Simulated scan of single mutants.
Amino acid sequence: MNRQALDAYEKALSLEHPSTLSSMANLASTYMNQGRWREAEELEVQVMETSSRVLGAEHPDTLTSMANLASTYWNQGRWKEAEELQAKELETCKRVLGAKHPDTLASMNNLASTFCNQGRWKQAEELEVQVMETRKRVLGAEHPDTLISMANLAFTFKGQGRDDEAIMLMEDCVQLREQMLGLYHPFTVSSQATLNDWRMETWNFDH
């Protein structure tokens, strides 16, 4: 269906029309969900370059297309290419939207994830602390997005072997998720399972 829609838009409009670009992005998303990375990448590059030329490098649609292409690189383990795009997107978001904007924080979180996957824990931690503290200040300490940031930072502590800090932060996350989301919410259950595993690892090490 996405392929048919794209063909129709290309015939009726032009390759540079927003509806055509949107349809192209949707088809790329479908390819991504099927693991057809090369086909997704080809479309996403075209969308990003066209959006940048027609709408401008700082337009929200251009930034979204940049994030989509970075995600495709990320899912293939192409960390350096993902990092380059994510860093560029983050700087643009900061400049255009401001450091507290949700899109800026999401961009910062994505770059932190890329650092984590390269074992660059300190750089990841620096970004994750910024995201968590900003979300606490702007959204509140109990907001679901703040709790996601808290869990991410706990995993980064764990990746550095800072087990006590990781466990303490995950305990706080579990407690708040139980209060805000409920005992049986998937996020609560997942966090509790992680916490149990970490506690068991620590217990086994001590004994």
Rank of each mutant, 00 (worst) to 15 (best):
T104R: 01
M66R: 11
E89T: 04
A57H: 13
H59L: 02
N68Q: 13
Y73W: 11
M32D: 06
A193D: 15
R199L: 13
D197E: 15
S29Q: 10
E41S: 03
T92R: 00
T194W: 09
A28S: 14
Y184K: 13
E128L: 02
R135H: 09
Y73P: 04
E133W: 06
D197M: 12
L195V: 13
F155K: 05
E125C: 08
A8M: 15
A67W: 14
A99R: 01
Q130H: 07
L97Q: 10
L169S: 07
F205E: 14
V189W: 01
A57Y: 05
N68F: 07
V96A: 03
S51C: 15
K80F: 07
M180G: 11
L105C: 06
W121Y: 08
L90D: 07
D61V: 06
P144D: 09
D172A: 13
R53F: 06
M168W: 03
L183I: 08
L111F: 11
E91N: 05
D164F: 12
L139E: 04
Y184L: 07
Q86C: 07
K136R: 10
R162C: 11
C173N: 08
M1Y: 10
G140K: 02
H143G: 05
A106V: 09
V54E: 15
D7H: 03
N204M: 12
T92Q: 03
M1I: 12
R95V: 02
T20R: 10
S22F: 05
D145E: 15
K11P: 03
D103S: 14
L111N: 08
L13F: 11
G182D: 07
V138I: 09
M108P: 09
A8C: 10
N68M: 07
N117Y: 13
S113K: 04
E201P: 02
E16A: 15
A8F: 07
L69P: 05
L6R: 03
Q123T: 11
T62S: 10
E126N: 01
D164W: 13
I148W: 00
S51P: 01
M150E: 02
A193F: 09
Q86R: 05
S22N: 15
D206H: 03
E128G: 03
S65E: 06
A99H: 04
L111C: 09
T104A: 04
T202K: 15
H17W: 06
L169I: 10
G56H: 01
V45C: 15
G77Y: 05
E44S: 01
N109H: 10
Q46S: 14
Q46N: 12
M48P: 00
W121F: 08
G98P: 05
Q175R: 03
S52D: 13
I148D: 00
E10F: 03
E41A: 11
C93F: 04
E44G: 00
D197V: 14
E81H: 13
C93K: 06
L181Y: 07
N196E: 15
R36P: 00
L13R: 05
M132Q: 00
A8L: 13
M150T: 08
